[in-house]
Design a protein around this nucleic acid. Structure first.
Lengths: 108, 108
DNA sequence: ACTTACGGTAAGCCATGGCTTACGGAAATG
DNA sequence: CATTTCCGTAAGCCATGGCTTACCGTAAGT
C-alpha cells in the first residue's frame, strides 16, 4: 500500500511543484527552494516526506544534498492506476449500456 | 490542472476505499457505506468530492443514486503520470551515472 | 394520502499537517 | 582553527478537512 503514501505526497500542491521541478533534472535543496513561495526548511520537510514515499532520493555533494526523482514510487503508483484503468473502462461501458436503452428497461 | 483535484481526492484513504469499491461495479450510496467504518453522510460527502474531480458519476435509480467510475478524471491522472514517467527514468539514469564513477569525478 | 426507504445538506467538533522562525551540525575555504 | 555555506530538525501557530448528528426533500409501496 505504498501508493497511498505516494498519493498523499503528490496531493500537496507545493510538493507537486517540487516534484515537477526535479523532473527537469537533479537539484540541491536551496536551488529548489529558490523559485518557490515557501521557505527553505519547508522544502526540506517536503523532500523528507517525498523520500519516505519512495518518490525521490538524495546524494550528498559537498555541503549540499542533491535530490532526484526515484522511479520506484512512481512505478507503484503507475501500476496501481493501470490496474484501475481497465476495470474503470469496463464499469463505464456497462454504465453507458445501462443508461442509453434505459427507457425500455425500467417501465416498458 | 484537474489532476491536482484527482490526486487530492485519492489521497484520502476512505475515498480510496470508496473508489476501489466502485471498481468492482456501480453501486448505490447505502451499499457503499455498508462495509465502510464511516457513516453514510460521510460517504455521500466523499462521493460529491469524487464527482467534482471527475472521478465518478452518478445516475438516479428510483429513490437511490447509483455511482460508477468515470474514466475522464482517471485518464487525466494517467496522462500526467506518463508525462512524468519518461523524464523520471531519464533523470534517474543520469543520477546513476553520476553516482558510480563519482570517485574519479570530484577529486582526481 | 400516509408511511417507509434512501440520500443530500448544514452545523459543529477536532485531529492532521503545512508553514514559519530559531537552532545546531557537517563540510569546504581561507 | 575560524568562517561561511548549506542543510536538517524542533517548537509552535493556524488553516484545512474529515467525521458525526440532525434535518429535509424525494420517490416508491400499501
Amino acid at each position: 500500500m505504498a501508493y497511498g503514501n505516494a498519493l498523499a505526497c503528490l496531493a500537496d500542491p507545493t510538493r507537486r511543484r517540487i516534484f515537477e521541478r526535479l523532473r527537469s533534472g537533479p537539484a540541491p535543496v536551496g536551488i529548489v527552494a529558490r523559485g518557490l513561495p515557501v521557505s527553505r526548511p519547508a522544502v526540506s520537510q517536503h523532500l523528507k516526506v517525498l523520500k519516505e514515499a519512495g518518490l525521490v532520493n538524495d546524494r550528498p555533494e559537498g555541503t549540499r544534498r542533491v535530490y532526484y526523482i526515484d522511479p520506484d514510487g512512481l512505478g507503484e503508483l503507475r501500476a496501481w492506476l493501470d490496474q484501475f484503468w481497465t476495470a474503470a473502462l469496463e464499469s463505464f461501458k456497462q454504465e453507458i449500456e445501462a443508461e442509453a436503452p434505459n427507457r425500455a428497461r425500467r417501465k416498458p
